[in-house]
């Protein structure tokens, strides 16, 4: 059963898999690129998102706007699930 999609569930996936590690608190609205997220980290994130939420991300979905924050990712995933 794929997990529920919320900004918090996306954020916990990011932190759990250490996609971003930061000395500063990371929230659902933190700009992840400003914390050093790069294309390599996004590749790891993609694998985990697809596993947990059962949603396939297309190359066209892979934009800065969709991935800048956990909230933005949750919104993209929710749109793709419906």
């Amino acid at each position: 059963m794929p997990a529920d999609i919320t900004a918090d569930s996306v954020l916990s996936l990011i932190l759990e898999h250490q996609i971003i590690e930061s000395a500063e608190p990371v929230t659902a609205s933190t700009d992840l690129f400003a914390l050093g997220m790069d294309s390599m980290a996004m590749m790891q994130l993609l694998l985990h998102i697809e596993d947990r939420f059962g949603i396939a991300i297309t190359p066209g979905d892979m934009t800065r706007d969709h991935f800048a924050t956990a909230s933005a990712m949750a919104q993209l995933l929710a749109e793709k699930r419906t």
């Binding site: 294309s39 996004m42 590749m43 993609l46 694998l47 991300i57 190359p59 979905d61 892979m62 934009t63």
Partner: peptide, 17 residues
């Protein structure tokens, strides 16, 4: 540019899968 770099990253993930 960034869009092409990110699309390419997604393509590589799909190819690995």
């Amino acid at each position: 540019d960034e869009p092409l770099r990110l699309r390419t990253a997604a393509l590589i993930v799909r190819a690995v899968k």
